[in-house]
Structure formats: structure tokens, C-alpha cells
């Protein structure tokens, strides 16, 4: 549950993917999206993109297993989506399988897989991006992209505070369950109301934390002047090579996907 629910949170590692400039990684994630869009009607052509996202997950030290975890987590939804797409193209191509109302053709299968990869490839790319990019660098990148510094700071603070918040939610839940709270019993209304003793203490904690955090931010002079970034990313030759290779790979895949004769 924990590894799954926090799959996209920054993980401290020393990997080639972590070392890349965040701009290079953002460009890469967008190229993954573009190539997936271009190959969405042919799952076969989208396979190299999927393989590249698995490679990125491995290179970022997260392990390609995370992809499996995310796919399994969304399996019901993904199955529904791919079946609908396969059904939508059931009148085109060669019939491969007829199972009751489900008619699976070669075209339908290609489209279903293409759409599956269109959904999953960007998800995996962004998971690799977020898990390998320090929130500090995300803040820098957001500011560079034109986000107001206070919004960038808010986003980064929230990301940094998330692990301790999740820990607090689990502690409160365990404490309430130990006192006899049964989250999985009763009607829908009762089950929803059972969350009151979990949410109220979390908000009470928030209310005291707000003042603490405000004073800490004030005494660290947040928003005092235009912020210096000691660890300002520097675009290096490695980033150029990575971006050029990405352009070539995903450009090639996109051309392959869009070319009707290929």
C-alpha cells in the first residue's frame, strides 16, 4: 500500500536519471506523451515507448516493477478502457476471437494496446520524472515555467510535508481502530461517518501546524526577495545528448506511428 500510494514521490538516489536537468526530464516526458499520441492506434508501434519508460524507471532506481504495480492497481479501469476500444474497432480487420458480445479483431487489438500505452506511458514517464527530481528542483522548474513563486513554494512544501502527513493519517487511523472504530462495517452512510474521528484529528493537527509553519516560513524569510537557488540546475552536455537521443527515438517512433504506409 505504502510503496504503491507514494509511487511518484521523490526518492533519493544517485542515478544517471536523477542527475539530469529537470528541463531535460520534462522535455522527455512530453516526448513520451507525443510519441504515445502518435502511436495510439497501433500498440505494436507504441511498444518501444513503453520499453523506454520501463528503462527510465530502472535508470532512476525505482525499478520497472513499479510499472507492474501501477498497472495492477488500475487493472479494472484499464481492462474496461481497452475492452471498449477493442469493441469500437470490432468491425475492422480480421476477426481473432469472438466471445459472446466481444469480437476481437487484429485492428481492435492494436488500437486497444495503443490506447493502453497512451494511458500508461505518460503516467510512467511522469512517475519517473517526479520520483527522480528533487522537490527543490521542481520548485525551480515551476518558477522557470512562470508559476508565481508563492504557488511554486506551496506546491513544494505540500510535497515535502506529504510523507509526514501520510504517516500521521496512518497513526490516527490505527489509534482509532484500536479504540474500536470499524471502518468496514455498516451502511454506506455509516461507513462514511466512521471517517469523522480520523479527519477531525488531522484537521486539528493542521490548525496547530499552520501557525508553526507560518512562523518558520517568516523567520526563514520566505518571499523576502528574489530567491537564490544554490543548486540551480546547469544544462550540461549529458542533457543535450539525452534530449537529442530522446528526440531521435520518439521522433522516429512518432513518424512510424503517423506514417500510413508503414
Amino acid at each position: 500500500m505504502e510503496a504503491l500510494s507514494l509511487g511518484g514521490l521523490y526518492v533519493e538516489r544517485k542515478t544517471p536519471f536523477h542527475e539530469l536537468d529537470p528541463r531535460a526530464k520534462i522535455a522527455w516526458a512530453l516526448l513520451v506523451l507525443a510519441a504515445s499520441v502518435a502511436t495510439q492506434f497501433d500498440g505494436l508501434k507504441a511498444l518501444p515507448v513503453f520499453a523506454s519508460t520501463l528503462a527510465a524507471l530502472s535508470l532512476s532506481g525505482l525499478g520497472a516493477g513499479l510499472a507492474l504495480l501501477l498497472i495492477v492497481n488500475a487493472s479494472a479501469f484499464l481492462a474496461a478502457v481497452t475492452l471498449v476500444w477493442a469493441g469500437a474497432y470490432s468491425s475492422q480487420g480480421v476477426l481473432l476471437l469472438a466471445l459472446g458480445p466481444l469480437r476481437l479483431t487484429d485492428v481492435g487489438l492494436k488500437v486497444a494496446f495503443g490506447k493502453f500505452f497512451l494511458i500508461m506511458n505518460p503516467v510512467l514517464a511522469f512517475a519517473a520524472l517526479f520520483a527522480s527530481t528533487r522537490p527543490y528542483h521542481l520548485m525551480w522548474a515551476l518558477e522557470k515555467l512562470g508559476a508565481p513563486p508563492k504557488v511554486a513554494l506551496t506546491f513544494t512544501l505540500a510535497l515535502n510535508l506529504l510523507p509526514s502527513t501520510v504517516k500521521a493519517v496512518r497513526e490516527v487511523t490505527e489509534a482509532q481502530v484500536a479504540r474500536g472504530l470499524a471502518l468496514d462495517r455498516g451502511s454506506v452512510v455509516q461507513r462514511l461517518r466512521n471517517y469523522v474521528p480520523i479527519i477531525v484529528p488531522m484537521i486539528a493537527k493542521l490548525l496547530s501546524d499552520v501557525w508553526d509553519l507560518s512562523m518558520v516560513l517568516a523567520s526563514r524569510y520566505a518571499g523576502y526577495a528574489r530567491r537564490t537557488y544554490v543548486f540551480e540546475p546547469r544544462w550540461s552536455a549529458r542533457d543535450t545528448v539525452f534530449t537529442v537521443l530522446s528526440l531521435l527515438l520518439y521522433g522516429g517512433v512518432a513518424a512510424w506511428g503517423l506514417a500510413p504506409w508503414w
Partner: peptide, 9 residues
């Protein structure tokens, strides 16, 4: 800073 803290929390 209170608004930032409120939004972040």
C-alpha cells in the same frame, strides 16, 4: 506566509 502555510498544509 500564513496563506502559503494554509494552502500547503
Amino acid at each position: 506566509v500564513i496563506d502559503v502555510a494554509l494552502a500547503a498544509l
